[in-house]
Structures are given as C-alpha cells and as structure tokens.
C-alpha cells in the first residue's frame, strides 16, 4: 500500500472535523454518565430522534437543520427532565439503578428505534441545505462544508456547555452533585433539582448532535447503535466528567477512525472505538484527564 502525503493529511483533517462532531454527540454522555453517574445508554437514541425531527421540519417547512435543532432545545430539555424524574422515582430512590436502571434505558433506546422504524421506515433520510455539497479547497486539502459546518457548530455547543459548567452556580453545582450530595445541600441547592437540570441539558445536546449527524451522513433508525460504543469510548478515554478530556478523546478517535477508513476501508471503522474502549479500560481506567 502506498501512503501518499496528500491522502494522509486529508485523512487527518477529515478526522479532526469528524472528531469535533463526535465531541458534540459525547457532550451529553459526559454530563449524564460522567457527572451524574447515570448510565444513559439511550442517548444515541435521542440523537437519532433529533436527526429525524430535523429531517421532518427541513423537508416539510424548509428550515435549516441547525436552526431546527436550536428550536428543539426546550422540548428535548423538558423530555430529559421528565425522564430523569421517572428514573429518580423508580430506580435511584429505591437504590436499584444498577440493574433495572440500565434495563430501563436499554428499553428506551430500543423503543425509540422501533418507533422511528414504524413511523419513517428503514430508508436512509437526508436533509437539504446550501452547505451540503460544496467544499473549500486549500492547496491539496479538501474541506467539505458538509463536515466543516457541523464541526464548528459542535465546537460552539461544546464551548457553551463548558462555560455554563465552569462559570455559573448551577453549572458548578452539577459538577459538585457527583462528588458530594450532602455538601451540596448545605450550599442550599437541591441535588435532585440540579440533577434534573443537568440531565435535561444532556438530552438537549442530543437535539443539536442529531441535527449535525443528519447533515454529515444520511440517517436510518439503527445508526444510533454504532454511536453507543463511540460515545462511551470517548467518554471513558477522556476521563469521566472531564469536558476538555472529552474533546481531546473525541478528536483522537475521529482521526484514528478516519485513518482506518482511508487505509483499511470504512467497514473497519466501527471496530476502532471498541479497541479504544478496551485498551482504556485495561490500561488507564481513569482516562486521559480523569480525576
């Protein structure tokens, strides 16, 4: 196999763009799994739900998918808060979150997927927007706008979350709730309310991630499953609850996947995330920037 420099650099750039997008998909998991210790394996299901809503509104009303996702934020936030309430009352409060909580989220993931199949069928769906198609050319480097726009939007989302978490009282309370609930109560913050806000926020990010996903690639209901391994691999590799770690891990995975796809074929790409996950768990369970 001859590895030409152009190809290598293009693969790395494509990986960087892909990694930025992965960061947006993982942001929600970093909050729910990393900070709240809620193993929300249904997250990719909500991402796909976001994709389909973006698709539906884009096709029928012609709204730009990214604008759709911003419009959807309050609804996804409310959905997340509702799910947390059910989860808290049924599992967390009774101390049964390990087995039944996981089964609950697995059921949610499955129900979302099958419901989408029933409503939209198993055909691939895609959106239409001006920036899907053309690319920027800088020398021999191709920058497809289809990847560049989602990457920029993803990084903006990521930065907003990071600012919210580190600069506001609620944000800091979210980081604190995973460490010491009692101490948080002494600071006059209700841990349940804080967790509800955080979980709502994590599901809200799925709306944006979903819209970005359908810009990058056509979507069908079972695509979400491929993302389960990816998002958790990124989250664990980055270090649970560390947003900067998540970003670094996402970009790393993006680049390695892109190189794998370029030099070994796209059908091998899904295996990369799992390799990442197993290696991290075996050698450095705390992740790159883990506490």
């Amino acid at each position: 196999m001859d590895i030409s420099l152009d190809l290598l650099i293009n693969a790395i750039i494509a990986g960087l763009l892909l990694g930025g997008f992965y960061a947006a998909v993982t942001a929600g998991i970093s909050i729910s799994f990393g900070m709240l210790d809620i193993v929300n394996i249904a997250h990719p299901g909500f991402v796909i739900l976001g994709s389909y809503l973006a698709y539906y509104l884009n096709i029928h009303l012609g709204i730009d998918p990214i604008i759709v996702s911003i419009l959807m934020l309050p609804f996804f936030y409310a959905l997340g808060a509702l799910i947390y309430q059910v989860y808290h009352l049924s599992f967390e409060k009774r101390g049964q979150d390990a087995l039944r909580g996981l089964a609950f989220f697995f059921g949610l993931l499955f129900v979302t997927e099958v419901a989408l199949i029933l409503v939209f069928g198993v055909d691939y769906r895609y959106v239409e927007a001006a920036y899907i198609g053309p690319s920027l050319h800088v020398g021999f480097v191709d920058l497809p706008l289809r990847m560049l726009v989602p990457c920029i939007a993803a990084l903006a989302l990521f930065a907003a979350i990071q600012l919210f978490i580190t600069r506001t009282f609620t944000g800091r309370a979210i980081m604190a709730v995973s460490q010491d609930q009692l101490a948080l109560q002494l600071m006059a913050a209700d841990p349940i309310k804080i967790k509800r806000i955080a979980f709502g926020l994590s599901i809200a990010t799925a709306a944006v991630a979903g819209a970005l996903l359908i810009i990058i690639q056509p979507v069908e209901p079972s695509v979400g499953r491929e993302y389960i391994g990816r998002v958790f691999a990124i989250c664990v590799l980055g270090g649970l609850g560390s947003m900067p770690g998540t970003l670094i891990a996402a970009i790393l995975l993006g680049i390695v996947e892109s190189l794998t796809a370029t030099f070994y074929g796209p059908s091998w790409a899904p295996a990369v995330a799992f390799g990442f996950l197993l290696l991290t768990l075996a050698f450095r369970p705390a992740g790159l920037l883990g506490r």
Partner: peptide, 25 residues
C-alpha cells in the same frame, strides 16, 4: 477479566460495544 474489575456499568457498556465490533469482524 478486562471490565469486571472496574465499576459495574463498564461491563454493560463493553458488552454493548462488543456486538458492534464482532459484527464488524
């Protein structure tokens, strides 16, 4: 052996990913 020494949820996540990887293989 790789995942059960860690927190319980890691095992669950690893099994989810295992299906995707074996299918890829």
């Amino acid at each position: 052996y790789l995942t059960l020494r860690l927190r319980g949820s890691f095992f669950a996540i690893a099994t989810l990913a295992l299906a995707v990887v074996l299918q890829t293989l």
